[in-house]
Write a protein that binds this DNA or RNA. Structure first.
Lengths: 232, 232
DNA sequence: GCAAAAGTGTTAGAATTACACCCATGC
DNA sequence: GCATGGGTGTAATTCTAACACTTTTGC
């Protein structure tokens, strides 16, 4: 940066959100259906313009709240990456900072705005069709899912997809949904409960389910897993 | 994004570079000394404004070329993160997209510009003094170093710090410099040569050094290491 | 009783660690 | 010869993977 006096260009800046959740053993993402051109009728990631004097993460939290209608001190929100290819928005030069959010429970249907109505969409078919998403959102979603996948390996982030109290099997289904694999329930149980600080055993048990009741756990203080849980 | 018709703010956007190299078994970063306020006389990361119709990575490559005077198809360049806190530049609202570059050889002294002269600076003392760097560059450098550290674990990126042909011991010294640890030379040798695709054995050997000549290797095709090289 | 899910034990194989030891060079 | 660094062998330990088996529920 060589001095504010010389000329430089200014850019429109947005935040786009990859909001992931696991429902019915499936990885889902929150999308909006575009009501106006360009890409009218196409699915897109929710997002919006950054306001003056607003931090990027603040803008992301604001959009997350607007889209999910939740006070979002729950779950997880982190910066994913920025996308600024000149042609990515046909209306003009827009740079977007993408954020990745992981939510526990599907916070119910999301209120529709004038421009878009939000819905949970299964990630797999969305990524299989390269044309399903507007703009470069296929790439952004793809990057977000890959980030989530790799972070599950070496962090305790998977618990962010779970409610406050959860069983080891619920946590395992998170891994299975995000990674698209099957894990051995017995080895998984030992590994998770044997990693200090990953989960904290509670006193309560599930009730009314099929099979033997499962102990309920809460998320522990550890954020890094050592050794990591390799997805093979 | 709700339609380009409605009002939105525009922002100055820069790319800042964390350019890392290993010299004399020490992790170094390229810094410039600021010749004008704010932060006059302080060290800063090199960077500059993104131009209209210029992709972010293109801007990063351009700045990298300008700062190092190299045709930079060598080495490694990846996006690190974006920083947009409203007060981060006292002259006004500036959003910066930081890139991380890893270079093999110190490409000699870098040409001075009117506003700054570049130099290689040891990372450790720079991070130890929270006030040594201008703007929020302490945070950016810190994030860049942490990214480099963790990527060495599970990728073959360390070879980007090495010349085209290198010995296993040279590669080990990269790990030791970046991680700030000591590694067992014998186990490291076995691990690296035993990981398929990490390095490719050449026919040539070092000459004129102390001790037994070491075989020269080139970087292999693998970019992910499995299993990872844990830094413990 | 039977199916289903939770959780423990056991064992073979793989990976990690810590060294002993030999090799090939400069001096 | 001796120091220095390169490279291989090997055994103890830890981690992983596969799966037999017991526990505790619903039906």
């Amino acid at each position: 940066m060589k001095g504010m006096a010389e000329t430089f260009d200014r850019f429109a800046v947005t935040v786009d959100l990859v909001i992931l959740t696991v429902q019915r053993e499936q990885l889902n993402v929150l999308t909006v259906t575009r009501k106006f051109p360009p890409f009218q009728g196409r699915q897109a990631l929710p997002g919006g313009f950054v306001e003056t004097d607003e931090d990027l993460i603040t803008a992301a939290f604001r959009e997350l709240g607007e889209e999910t209608g939740l006070a979002c001190d729950v779950g997880h929100l982190e910066q994913l990456a920025s996308y600024g290819e000149p042609g990515r928005d046909p209306r003009g030069r827009v740079i977007t900072v993408a954020y990745l959010a992981l939510l526990a429970d599907p916070p119910g249907p999301v209120a529709a705005t004038d421009a878009a109505s939000a819905q949970w969409t299964a990630v797999e078919p969305l990524l299989a069709d390269r044309e399903a998403l507007a703009f470069d959102h296929h790439r952004i979603l793809s990057d977000g899912v890959e980030r989530a996948r790799s972070k599950l390996e070496y962090s305790s982030l998977a618990a962010q997809f779970c409610p406050a109290e959860f069983t080891i099997a619920q946590l395992r289904r998170i891994y299975e949904a995000v990674w698209g694999t099957r894990l051995d329930p017995r080895n998984f149980h030992r590994k998770v409960t044997g990693t200090p600080g990953f989960v904290i055993a509670g006193d309560r048990y599930t009730d009314g389910e099929r099979g033997r009741p499962a102990r309920l756990y809460r998320q522990g203080p550890a954020d890094q897993l050592h050794p990591p849980l390799l997805r093979r």
